[in-house]
Design a protein around this nucleic acid. Structure first.
Lengths: 335, 335
DNA sequence: TCCTTTAAGGTAATCGGTTTCATACGCGTC
DNA sequence: GACGCGTATGAAACCGATTACCTTAAAGGA
């Protein structure tokens, strides 16, 4: 029982396929009588035009591909929600790929998406990616590419990023304003621009207020496993830090736990500030101060930019770079 | 600059399209010499077969659609990760739709996916869905459908569910075993089977241990906003509950906060147990006891079931129902 | 020498629509 | 009655690949 085609309708009503095609689109060249006859028959038999056939003819698919490194992740899931909402509004479908922070899989995802002939790709780089040929291939194939958040500095294309520098700068400056003087930075691998920018924001804020930038207070610590090792080490320093500025909320939440179990009061002895402003912030004790990255908005902006490119509505020449502003949300984990 | 097609190659090498097609597939009817010539030319010009054309011909797409009610949501994002991993392994692409708990959008998503002619759909119902014609239409269109988690009882099709009843029963029995006698249930709208099953597990556990099932201790409270209203009311009862069994971790986490700010010690005065075992469990204070739903596994199982159906490998006749076992993870929020 | 076989490749139909370019007919007009 | 014009429809090409069915030429056998 194959689905009914336009030709089936033509045969059944003793018309030509072209007439049926036109009748379905209410072409005035077809008599009203015929149009109604065709449409009635089509409705009755649940005719559905074959998208594939149309796409083949126009050589255009209304699908955009998304590559994210992780999805069980507050920030990326909010971005995806923003992308999906915007895409749906503009009548684009979403082909979803997960790189799992794995370079090989990221490469495979790109191939999958190019194979599927998507008209554009939104991507956030995996942590393990060091070479960019696969991204270049997207551009070589004349497929539009917009990076979001974890952009790829080796590729010249549109991007949407969080204002990590300002986010970090403002957060650290706020910590300083509350009296903190030995602020630790729990960062991420330095080849991720987002981590680097935050570290620079952190350091510049210290420098602005004439506080020393100390190597031992700035470490890579972006996972829970690392946190269990790094944070106790830092707390054992003499003197210990009086604040932690963390690369994400999970590390920050753990930081609160670890600090408390090591006899430090939060925020009296140490302040803790996260980054993302996920739902974790409301359930830590004390509630977590964090920098909101506006992930949903980033998704919307990235999708809109990509779609504008696809539809030729983004007139600005050269590459476009959008900055999503951050906002420090002060709760109880800082003085 | 359109991408190179098979016909272009044929013209360039003065061959017919059929010869090129066969040469590309290493058909022995074509001389080795020609095969190599064609393949070399194709590689040099980055020829990519047009998937659309092949799909049109075979009338088969290797894409499955997913509809989730929410994505900024620990459980659903883990399920999606499981689905994606399994789909990728079996060489299927994922078309991603978000219903946002909205009936209209769910209907639209179904239409989108049927339009895209996916070969199967994985769906979890939105909370606001009351009628099921759109799901029936999937089946009427001979597209395979597997429900996961929030199944639709009005539709006769394969499903994968968490063993909510046993999960709730065991959790409540555990609470009783620690000495709790007035256990409250913070549930969800009763037309969701998952909520109903948990309530039944809750009530049966009480009955088994000859504890009264009280109306006032069982309420709909599945969002943070509701929690702010409902939990203080319950704590004001005389006597107050000595335990809360919550429909999800967010409500449970809030419950801890609210209990503490109302002067109750957790777990000494009230125990709190969540459902999902999300990353929230590690950052509440005290850490949250919760029922693990194994979302990732559910995603894998659902995707595998769907793909087996699509490929005709699921031989079992009638509808298949898979149960994902839960596991109570005891932490510090219970005695 | 003639016929058969086989290697190597070409022709054309097909998938399901869209679109350009005819065609057929009726009617009014000079 | 020849011409023009508008209306309603059909025929065929096309999108890009696959494939059933031919064609051609050379080799091999009797």
């Amino acid at each position: 029982m194959k689905p009914i085609t336009l030709k089936d309708i033509a045969k059944a009503l003793d018309l030509s396929p072209s007439t049926v095609s036109r009748a379905m689109k209410d072409n005035p060249a077809i008599s009203l009588q015929t149009r109604e006859r065709v449409q009635a028959y089509a409705a009755k038999h649940k005719y559905k035009p074959n998208t594939l056939a149309m796409q083949l003819r126009t050589n255009r698919v209304n699908t955009i591909g998304v590559i994210v490194p992780e999805i069980v992740h507050y920030f990326f899931s909010t971005v995806l929600a923003g992308i999906q909402d915007e895409a749906e509004k503009k009548n684009y479908n979403l082909l979803f790929c997960l790189s799992n922070e794995d370079y090989e899989r990221e490469v495979k995802s790109v191939e999958t998406l190019l194979d599927a002939r998507v008209c554009g790709i939104l991507a956030s780089q995996s942590k393990s990616t060091r070479t960019f040929d696969h991204f270049q291939e997207i551009i070589d194939n004349k497929v539009h590419l917009v990076f979001f958040d974890r952009i790829c500095t080796g590729i010249n294309t549109d991007k949407v990023v969080v204002d990590d520098y300002a986010g970090a700068f403002n957060a650290v400056e706020y910590l300083i304003s509350t009296g903190c003087k030995r602020i630790a930075f729990l960062g991420a691998t330095p080849w991720l621009p987002i981590a680097n920018n935050r570290r620079m924001g952190y350091e510049d804020a210290l420098r602005k207020h004439r506080l020393p930038v100390e190597k031992e207070l700035s470490q890579v610590c972006d996972t829970v496993d690392l946190a269990k090792v790094v944070i106790p080490q830092m707390l054992a320093l003499d003197p210990p830090p009086d604040a932690f500025f963390c690369i994400n909320d999970e590390v920050a939440a753990y930081c609160i736990q670890i600090a408390k179990s090591n006899g430090f009061n939060v925020p009296e002895d140490v302040s803790v500030c996260g980054f993302t402003n996920s739902y974790l912030t409301e359930v830590t004790y004390p509630k977590l101060t964090s920098v909101d990255q506006h992930g949903y908005r980033m998704g919307e902006v990235a999708a809109r930019l990509l779609i504008n490119r696809i539809e030729g509505r983004e007139t600005k020449p050269g590459i476009v770079s959008r900055l999503i502003k951050t906002k420090l949300v002060v709760r109880e984990s800082t003085k």
